[in-house]
Design a protein around this nucleic acid. Structure first.
Lengths: 316, 316
DNA sequence: GTTTGTTACGGCTACCGTAAAGATC
DNA sequence: GATCTTTACGGTAGCCGTAACAAAC
């Protein structure tokens, strides 16, 4: 049994059982892959792929288990290389954070700044995307750490660590009737105006909808954006009332706008850090997490990684 | 990076950093091992072994982590082969139980009988040893399942699943004064006679000592044995009073002896099943566990395997 | 007919084992 | 001096890639 054979196997599965594409991705020839997979099947004594004549059409039952374990082996082989890098160059290396606009724009800058001055030699890169994209980046190994709110569950490979809770605010232009309200604002007050808020795939948008539904209100959402700056821009233009994360409102910068706390209108959201359970994290990655959320020490994080991984059956 | 290199690495470490012995164990040449380890070190960019001139004297810090992961990779490669066997021959295969005399003699026969009639093609073998030996057999992969009482903790590689609690009995020859006692037996009654009980390394012997100590009594142990049959033999000969597991007393067979329940004198002991967390268990292995302890279903066991593994630093 | 997977074959890498030399105890 | 590890070197297994063939959509 050789590691390459496992690599071939996993890649073929990843490419939708297409040997040719797998060969291209791995910069090698189809026949090589075909042969090595055959050899592995012979050695293990089981068919891994079901072939219809000469076409790979499915994975056998043992094949599914074998693929699962093969992935774990390859992941750990990766980890070996990382350990090497870690010790060769304790301070240097790279760290990739996958996150949403809101986190990148408002929550992370403080952490990033502290991290960069502590580890000037680490090449830090940030990838932006939807919560789903972010999770997949980490699952695929394209990013080391995911930071996002909601929308990230059923990935058995990921451990999700709660960082902090946050609430929402209603944002209106100065002089807007809602700003002059002399009582606590209610959902019905908000629902009376056209709304501007996050896109559906993002930051607990479903949570906002639920809050309205519960009171039998149907909000009139006239614009959905994936980032808070766009929302604020259109609120300034008078297009409607904005609902966004409280942290995304900066009084000094956002002149002309007024924020009204809406913590009592919507359930708080929880921002979480996600990492692959079986990935080897560099020392500075743990420090990054701790800088972002001080209660997540290295010990806490490593502890959570090993807890009850649901035995998820992954379907394509 | 190749699997063989990892195999070499782990074997050298196992053989006390002696490359020559590792070569012999693996039926290959020393130079081969030396070279491959060098190549791996080059590839990873770290020294794994510390060499004093030409002699391997220690493992570096990164080396320890690398060894740890390498072992896991090899274990999973083993698992791949097992999956092969499992599916080639669902009913056949082998299962090795490591256990103590008491379990093998009194607790297991019922389970074994049921198992053999269910899986007549499985080659079942039982290895006997002290709790420590048993645990090591499973850690080393020489046995699949350990069954023992106490004395098995700090092995981070093993998951220990509680099976049942049991109590002890005092065993005396017929006509012995303790048998005629008209009140509940006390520790002081027992301490008045010479005692025959388990060897120190076994079945909660320390627990017996503690019970006496707590009451300020110093028991006079005249004979320690590693199996219950020996204890009963000497009790029959009048050498002293026996303390053994209640299940080890069989009224029909042990004529001439009387058992007195001592559940109130000593804390109950818990018998546990131990398996390697990262081993792949054949389907029938799960069935064996469930036959032995019905509450340990396949789901329960697999669940426990993944729980909080303490990050143990293993020293040689 | 086009795409896709297997078989056949040749080149070449690199692994393994033997032999010898260097180092440590 | 004995044990142990590394270096040097030759044989060979096996991996890879090209080319041709076969099957499926």
């Amino acid at each position: 049994m050789k590691l390459q054979q496992l690599r071939y196997l996993v890649e073929v599965s990843k490419q939708g059982l297409n040997v040719s594409e797998a060969a291209e991705k791995l910069h090698t020839s189809q026949p090589g892959i075909s042969k090595q997979i055959r050899l592995l099947e012979d050695e293990l004594g089981v068919q891994i792929f079901i072939r219809n004549g000469k076409r790979v059409v499915d994975v056998t039952a043992p094949g599914r288990e074998i693929l699962h374990i093969a992935e774990r082996i390859l992941m750990q082989a990766q980890n070996l290389k990382r350990i090497g890098e870690e010790f060769v160059n304790v301070e240097g290396g790279s760290l990739t954070i996958a996150t949403t606009h809101t986190q990148a724009r408002y929550a992370l800058p403080r952490t990033i700044k502290a991290f960069l001055s502590r580890y000037p030699k680490v090449r830090l890169s940030i990838k932006q995307g939807s919560p789903t994209q972010i999770s997949e980046m980490v699952v695929e190994g394209e990013a080391d750490i995911a930071i996002a709110t909601e929308g990230i569950d059923h990935y058995p490979e990921l451990a999700m660590l709660p960082c902090y809770e946050w609430n929402r605010s209603i944002v209106v232009p100065e002089g807007h009737p809602l700003a002059a309200l002399d009582r606590k604002i209610g959902l019905d007050d908000v629902a009376a105006y056209p709304l501007v808020t996050y896109d559906f795939a993002f930051t607990g948008r479903s949570l906002i909808n639920r809050a309205f539904e519960k009171q039998g209100l149907t909000p009139n959402v006239v614009l959905t954006a994936i980032d808070s700056d766009v929302i604020k821009t259109y609120v300034t233009l008078g297009l409607g009332v904005g609902i966004l994360a409280t942290m995304a409102f900066e009084p000094e910068r956002d002149r002309g706008l007024v924020a009204i706390d809406a913590g009592h209108l919507f359930e708080p959201s929880v921002t979480r850090i996600g990492v692959r359970r079986d990935a080897y994290l560099r020392g500075y990655a743990f420090d990054f997490i701790e800088l972002f959320s001080p209660h997540l020490t290295r010990e806490t994080v490593q502890g959570s990684l090993l807890m009850s991984e649901p035995e998820g059956e992954e379907e394509e």
